[in-house]
């Protein structure tokens, strides 16, 4: 561990450039999926354990389209649309029935959905790892010490563009306003004539579409496997817990921070700690919140 620190800061400080860049690229993907989770959690109080599987599903859709000759960038809107429809179906079949029950029912239902999706993807695509070769060039810097694949730059820009569209949509459009109103007070929103059932369906579908887009980006920069979803679920939960609901700048900030934590943990403590680091962040945040909220906690009489 010490020699890794030495390597990082004394012998090859230029490594840090690579780490920070990689952290940003992967943070952008996390940010999308985490924002979708924050949305569903905040608006509907549903903790979607199938979040990561939606991401992987989006990736596999992009993979299928790629095999049909559609490039990943062109696939993006198609996957978003398909996932939106899929989200709507999931809502009607499952989420609608559990939304008024307590938290554990929705956890169980989405966990079941997660297992179901994993097995379906396993049946269709098989357990082998799949990749998309997007044929983007690779840039090199610092005497080819730092490499920046254009695929990652493109996915960062796409993520940023997509996030901007969602922000504007949430701020300006009538549906966006209705979603925010429902999040604040569903009953008041209903009184004022908002069809909250429709808003819930829309929110869940929007989340699925966002995950689908994140999945396309995953397929460009990483590899796909039917059982990889859990890692993304885990990261999004860590991010949303740390950032809080309905706080988009915090979600983005924490996503990048988590990207960096993972990269540095991987270098300093070894690759086996990379994902463990995400979980440790989650635990750390929970402990910190516990201490922070102590003062305000009161006994219910």
């Amino acid at each position: 561990m010490l020699d890794n620190l030495q390597l990082l800061f004394v012998f090859a400080p230029v490594m840090n450039v690579q780490m920070i860049l990689d952290g940003i690229f992967i943070g952008a993907v996390f940010a999308l999926a985490a924002y979708g989770l924050a949305l569903v959690w905040g608006v509907m109080n549903v903790k979607n354990l199938a979040q990561g599987d939606f991401v992987i599903m989006g990736g596999y859709l992009a993979f299928s389209l790629f095999n049909m000759g559609v490039g990943p960038i062109a696939a993006l809107p198609i996957v978003a649309a398909v996932m939106f429809g899929f989200g709507w179906i999931c809502y009607l079949l499952i989420i609608k029935r559990v939304i008024d029950n307590d938290m554990f029912v929705s956890l169980l239902a989405t966990f079941g959905l997660s297992l179901f999706l994993q097995q379906v993807m396993n049946l269709i695509y098989g357990p082998e790892v799949q990749t998309i070769d997007s044929k983007f060039p690779i840039l090199t810097m610092f005497d080819s010490f730092v490499t920046v694949p254009m695929a990652k730059v493109v996915s960062l820009l796409l993520a940023a563009g997509f996030a901007a569209i969602i922000i504007i949509f949430m701020k300006k459009s009538r549906t966006g306003q209705a979603i925010r109103a429902t999040a604040q007070d569903a009953r008041a929103a209903r009184v004022l004539g908002i069809n909250t059932d429709r808003i819930y369906a829309f929110t869940f579908s929007l989340n699925a579409a966002i995950c689908g887009v994140a999945g396309v980006l995953v397929s460009i920069i990483w590899v796909l496997q039917p059982f990889y979803g859990i890692v993304y679920s885990l990261r999004t939960f860590a991010i949303v817990t740390a950032a809080g609901l309905g706080n988009l700048p915090a979600v983005i900030g924490v996503s990048f921070a988590l990207g960096w934590v993972e990269q540095y943990a991987g270098i300093i403590m070894g690759a086996e700690w990379q994902i463990a680091a995400a979980v440790m962040v989650l635990i750390g945040v929970l402990v910190w919140r516990q201490i922070q909220l102590r003062r305000q906690r009161q006994v219910v009489r």
């Binding site: 990689d22 990483w222 943990a265 690759a271």
Partner: peptide, 22 residues
């Protein structure tokens, strides 16, 4: 470098960055 990869790790860039440096 002697890294152990978790079963569901889809990113080994940390190991490879170190490899590049060493």
């Amino acid at each position: 470098i002697d890294d152990k990869l978790p079963a569901d790790l889809s990113d080994m860039s940390a190991t490879l960055t170190k490899t590049k440096a060493l």
